[in-house]
Amino acid sequence: MRRNDSRAARRQGSPFTGLGPVFMKELSDHLSSVRMMVLTLFVLAFGAFPVASSLQTLRTVVDPNSFLFLRIFTLEPEQVGISFIAALNFIIPLMAIGLGFDSVNSEFNRRTLSRVLSQPIYRDALLLGKFLAGLTTFAVALVALWLIVVGAGLLLLGVPPRGVEVARGLGFLVVSVAYGGVWLAIAMLFSVLFRSTATSALCALGLWLFFFLLWPQLASAVVSGVAPSEIRSLEEYAAVQDIAMGLMRFSPGTLFSEAVLGLLSPETRTLGPMLPAQMRGAIMGAPLPFDQSLLMIWPQITGLVAGMVVVFAAAYVIFQREEVRA
């Protein structure tokens, strides 16, 4: 293992040699694949439903909110029971997993890996090229979806979005891409770990379900175990809440929904419990300026990006040590 490090320091030539060709090839593979079309249809179907009913509601009911456009994303229509962003929270991981779960092990199984690696590139370029191509594909699909939603909003509401709404919407796009990046990195990690594509898909999907279904229960169980039986003071209450939130934030989905809440619901002042001291001087329901919202959710954005980098680095380290022989 020590040899590996010393070798990396000594080897010559840029690790990014060949990154461009790998990226372009993977991108064209993704964009022309049937899987991509299926995923896009899936996302469109899932996204169209809440958006259509939100628009229906927004057209008929007078909403006092001044950020009318953002309400398309956040409104929970009664008929559907799920908002557009909640649907995305659920769907983005699935899409990212679909793009990444077989990226490395399929090269093993097709026996193309040793042939490709015998060309003048390092493994770094191969893995990074695949990741960036996946992320780009994902971003393209997401931007398309976003434009459709905004376009539908323009047509059906007849109210143009204000500048700040567009800015918040773009911020939402960036956060979504980072969230997808985390799951893409996770899927690629499994694709490096397991030679079987089915196993790696299953593991990635299992982790996704774990974070969605089990993790909230598990976190509250842990909190109720740790918390004192009787909460006597505000400080104690805050401490317990802190633990609960901290645990929940291990799930990328929590970070995503908090960040999106801050961006798309400008009246959000804090993501945790609000102490009376924090309320002093605040006008209830008044929106925060964009930069203040951004400041509030900055830790969430950092967390998502850091998670993506850490998981990708893990995949990278494992891939470097893997034997290429099939």
């Binding site: 070798r7 000594r10 010559q12 030539g13 015998s118 590139i121 390092y122």
Partner: peptide, 10 residues
């Protein structure tokens, strides 16, 4: 090949 794999593989 350990230190200059790109040159070798080219």
């Amino acid at each position: 090949p350990v230190r200059q794999p790109l040159e070798v593989k080219r």
